[in-house]
């Protein structure tokens, strides 16, 4: 079976800084895959390259067997590959419910759909997902009024509203109230198992990622340092050195 996402030999430099250097990795259909690495190791750059934020210098990226390295951000999103942002991004002046409603998938969108109101099913689904992330009581608040952690949850719900096949999450637990982290992890597992969304997750919280992911890639200095199941990564000397700064 072809993997849902294939990154082949991707290189991206900013000026003289090589942020990603010949990275090759695969995300198979189904599981939760982790991406770790010290600060500045090129994780977010790799996410940006995958979803089309900037052109890549070399290599290619494939989604469901189709090359997407030259597509634009919205085109890639419409294929069912979505990402959330490290610094969350939501529509600040719109209500939470509206944030959700506008996040429906935008495939096959003619003038007719553009100019019609939302059917009740959409609103229901939006409310259901808000409930799922615990924001239902705040559905009529404006997005900008939420706290950072709440915005993060809203952004996650918006992504789910879009029914992606693969969801790239950039530090989903950063800024979340620590007492909520366990239940959030449980939610992420359910998103993966029940909704059938493959997850590719950047995470700094080792406890979270080791518990969550079935397979982990580790970047350091823009290069792929190690990969393997969590138990293996945890004991990998190279990974430990990279995090502790030994070189």
């Amino acid at each position: 079976m072809t993997p849902i996402l294939e990154v082949q030999d991707v290189t991206k430099a900013f000026g003289g800084v090589i942020a990603n250097d010949g990275i090759t990795l695969k995300v198979p259909q189904g599981p939760i895959i982790g991406l770790i690495g010290p600060n500045g190791s090129g994780k977010t750059t790799l996410f940006n390259s995958i979803v089309g934020y900037h052109p890549i210098d070399r290599g290619s990226i494939w989604f469901e067997g189709r090359e997407i390295s030259r597509l634009r951000v919205p085109q890639i999103a419409r294929l069912g590959l979505l990402r959330t942002f490290q610094q969350t991004r939501i529509y600040g002046k719109m209500r939470c419910l509206e944030n959700m409603q506008i996040s429906v998938p935008h495939v096959h969108e003619g003038l007719r759909t553009m100019l019609s109101p939302y059917p009740p099913e959409v609103t229901e689904r939006a409310e259901g997902l808000l409930e799922f992330v615990g924001l239902y009581p705040k559905r009529h608040l404006r997005g900008g009024e939420l706290s950072f952690g709440q915005q993060k949850l809203l952004e996650l719900a918006m992504a789910l509203m879009n029914q992606p096949k693969l969801l790239l999450l950039d530090e989903p637990t950063a800024g979340i109230n620590p007492v909520l982290i366990n239940s959030l992890m449980e939610r992420l597992k359910r998103i993966n198992a029940d909704l059938g969304v493959t997850l590719f997750v950047i995470e700094h919280n080792m406890r979270v990622i080791m518990n969550l992911a079935q397979h982990i890639y580790c970047l350091a200095h823009g290069q792929l340092l190690a990969e393997g199941p969590p138990e293996e990564i945890q004991t990998d000397q190279q990974v430990i050195d990279a995090y502790l700064g030994a070189r």
């Binding site: 634009r72 991004r89 529509y91 409603q101 506008i102 100019l115």
Partner: peptide, 21 residues
């Protein structure tokens, strides 16, 4: 309509709107 929300979304954060397809 969907149009109304979409243009509001573009106003609030066009990059995000693009990222959502």
């Amino acid at each position: 309509t969907r149009f109304g929300l979409a243009i509001n979304a573009i106003r609030d954060d066009e990059d995000k709107a693009e990222a959502m397809g």
